[in-house]
Structures are given as structure tokens and as C-alpha cells.
Amino acid sequence: MKAGYNNQKKPLKLNDKKSEIIWGYILIAPAFAILLIFHILPALSSFWFALTEWNGMTAPSFIGLENYINMFKDEQFMQSVVNTTIFTAGSVSLSVIVAVFFAVQLNKKIRARAFYRSVYFLPFVIMLVAVGTTFSWVFNSQFGLVNQILGFFGLPTPSWITNPELLMTTMILADVWHKLGYNLVILLAGLQSIPRTFYEAADIDGANSFQKFWTVTLPLLSPSLFFVIIISLINSFKMFDLVFIMTGGNPILLEGTSTMVYNIYEQAFTYSYMGYASAQSILLFFIIMIATLIQFYLQKKWVHY
């Protein structure tokens, strides 16, 4: 009986293995082909283009590391690295802190929680292009709502969108407004997974609400917090849309706000310095990778799974 069962099973099993392999490849093929052809290979070929002088039309000519050397002498580019860093630092820290604050409020047992959550999430579905046009208008120096309100209370009414230094602040505020809801929803889901018993235990130990936040909420929220920080970080480093819309290509405004991706776009598609722009892409890639790796390294110290 047992032997017969085995005999029957064996040929079937061989076939099975073969068809598993064939089906495995069939199922994976479309996604793998798309990612390989349109994402992986172009990214790898960037490393070659970065070593060339190339206008996109004629064949690229090899110039070694010249693009990389020029990059560090290029004031406009170095300024865009600084701008991107400022934008990322401002946008990530502000959006995460504000999101934690509101998530903690929303996690309390109150009415209309779902309603608040829906309202806060709404900006996330708005395209950044429209966020840019709207914020340009709301922060308009003369007729914008913000300055009208500030003026009403007798506060100073700065030129939010025409002063190159302030425009960066306005862009950060616009970005925070846009992604607050996303961060909030993820952090709220993290808060809701914290068991009530932890808070009850803290109550028994006589902890006040500030102590509970530091010793219970924050450590247990750390995985969600880490996820939100990584996602915000990567997205902020790639900022382009707001710069494009809010500066309208004005070089004076761009000086204080042009991000790396905007600079790459300009070098490649306005001036046709494709090789040079490729080198900048690669620097951006390494900056994002290093920033992510630092976060992953630091998480060992503060994230508790």
C-alpha cells in the first residue's frame, strides 16, 4: 500500500517541480521585464553616462571623472545640494512632529475621530502642482489670505513667495500640509496597535501623561515613526514639482530654492548637458542611500520592535 502510493507520487512530483519552475518564471516575467528594461538597466547605464560628455544627440565621449570634479566647482549645483538638504530637514522634521502631535490627540477616546482623520488626510490626494499654485496664492504678499490675517493682527506681512529666502519656508509649509495626512494615518495605525495594558501598567506606577508619552507611546510607536521618516526623507530629497511651480523658472527665486532634481532637470533638458546631469543623478542616489543607511543604523538605537 505504502509502496504503491510512493510509486504513483514520484513521476507526478517531477512534473510538478518542472511546472513550478516554468510557472514561476511566467508569473514573474512581465514585472521583471518592465523593471529591468525601464528601471534597473537605465540606472546602471547612468554610471557610464556620468563619465562622458554628452548632449543627447551625438555619441557620448568619455571624459573620465571630469563631471564629478566640475560638480564640486559648480556653485549653482552646490547651492542646490544645500537647498535640498534644508528642504528635507525642514519638511521631514516638521511633518513628523506635527503628525505625531495630532496622531496622539486623535488616538484619545473622543467623538468624530473618523471625521477629523478624513479631513487631515484630504491634502494627500491633491497633486503637488495644485498645492504649489494654491500656496502661491494663499501666501501672496499683497492679496494672500495669510498676510491679510497677519496684517489684521498687526503682525509683519513678509513677501512669502517673492523673497528667495522666504520661498523655501513657504515650500516647506506647502509640503508639510500636503503630507501631514499620510504621516498621520500611518502613525495613528501604529498608536492603535499599542495595547491598552501598557498604559494601565503605567497608571498603576503613577506615571503622568508626559511620562507615559516618553516611556510607553514613543518607544512602541518607533517602528511606525521610523517608516514615516524614511518615506518622507526619500520623497523630500526628490522634490521637484513645488520648485517648478512656485518659482516659475525665475532664476533669482531658484537660487534659494532649486533642488537637486530640479537642477538635474534643467541641466539635462534645458542645456542638454546629459553626461553632467547623469553625474548629478548619481550623487543624489548616493546621498539618499547614505541618508537611508544612517537611519537604518540609528534605528538600532531607538526603534523597538
Binding site: 528601471h39 540606472a43 547612468s46 543627447g56 526628490k238 532634481v261 543623478s281 542616489f285
Partner: peptide
């Protein structure tokens, strides 16, 4: 499913998370 190269393919595919297309728009263009 189990098939040869599964893990390598998986790692390659999720590595795309690290380089969104806009970062390498020049070669794609």
C-alpha cells in the same frame, strides 16, 4: 513558489525602491 534565481530576482526588483525613475530620467529618456 520555488524556482532557481528567485531570491536574486526578488532583490533586484525591490532594489528599484531605492532609485525611482525620476532620479535616472536621463538614460530612460
Amino acid at each position: 513558489m520555488r524556482f532557481p534565481g528567485r531570491n536574486v530576482i526578488f532583490i533586484m526588483m525591490i532594489s528599484v525602491l531605492m532609485f525611482p525613475p525620476e532620479m535616472f530620467m536621463i538614460p530612460v529618456y
